[in-house]
Simulated scan of single mutants.
Amino acid sequence: MKRERRIFSPEDRLAILQEGQREGNVVTCRKYHLSPSLYAKWRTKYLSKGVEGLKSAYKRIDPELRALEEENERLKRIIARQALEIEFKSELLKKSPVLTKTRR
């Protein structure tokens, strides 16, 4: 049977640690179905860094934000290519001989 991954917020983790101090680690771990090693890891991080240590080490990037960033990069490449074309064409115009008008 596959167990679903649970996500605890930093506030939840802090509440579980405080409850563990009051009622005991083993009782609290059984109540919340946590492994003692996970409880110990949370406790170590809390003691070393405080509440900041209980926050997730990784950030989830919003899919909309990721799509906007990719769009931004694509547009930057387009603009860079156009600027290069304009510069190339202006250099060609400087080097080409000027056509003179013929008088009739």
Results as ranks from 00 to 15, higher is better:
42 W>R: 01
67 A>Y: 03
51 V>C: 00
10 P>F: 03
83 A>W: 10
7 I>P: 00
16 I>M: 03
73 E>A: 12
99 L>K: 11
52 E>R: 02
99 L>C: 09
74 R>L: 08
19 E>H: 05
32 Y>H: 15
44 T>V: 07
19 E>T: 02
67 A>M: 04
65 L>M: 06
94 K>N: 06
32 Y>W: 13
71 E>K: 13
89 K>E: 12
77 R>K: 14
16 I>T: 04
53 G>Y: 02
3 R>G: 02
97 P>L: 08
8 F>Y: 15
7 I>Y: 08
59 K>L: 02
47 L>C: 10
56 S>W: 00
46 Y>F: 09
9 S>V: 02
102 T>A: 11
93 L>R: 11
26 V>P: 00
55 K>W: 01
64 E>S: 05
55 K>E: 07
81 R>L: 13
69 E>G: 02
65 L>R: 13
15 A>V: 08
38 L>D: 01
27 V>T: 11
87 E>W: 11
27 V>D: 08
46 Y>T: 00
12 D>A: 10
69 E>M: 10
61 I>T: 14
25 N>W: 05
10 P>K: 02
24 G>I: 04
76 K>Q: 14
37 S>A: 13
46 Y>C: 01
55 K>Q: 04
85 E>P: 02
13 R>S: 03
12 D>S: 11
33 H>E: 10
12 D>M: 12
10 P>I: 05
18 Q>A: 08
50 G>T: 06
98 V>W: 06
80 A>N: 14
8 F>V: 01
98 V>I: 14
76 K>P: 00
65 L>F: 11
86 I>K: 15
69 E>T: 07
68 L>K: 12
101 K>P: 02
56 S>T: 05
31 K>A: 08
90 S>K: 13
36 P>F: 06
96 S>W: 03
64 E>A: 11
88 F>G: 08
46 Y>M: 03
74 R>G: 02
26 V>K: 05
7 I>R: 07
32 Y>D: 01
72 N>T: 13
69 E>Y: 09
33 H>C: 11
56 S>M: 01
80 A>F: 11
96 S>P: 01
56 S>I: 00
79 I>H: 09
65 L>W: 09
45 K>R: 14
82 Q>Y: 14
18 Q>L: 14
28 T>H: 05
103 R>E: 13
69 E>L: 12
21 Q>F: 01
82 Q>K: 15
17 L>W: 01
72 N>R: 15
96 S>G: 04
44 T>F: 02
104 R>L: 12
48 S>A: 14
74 R>W: 04
34 L>V: 03
78 I>D: 12
4 E>V: 07
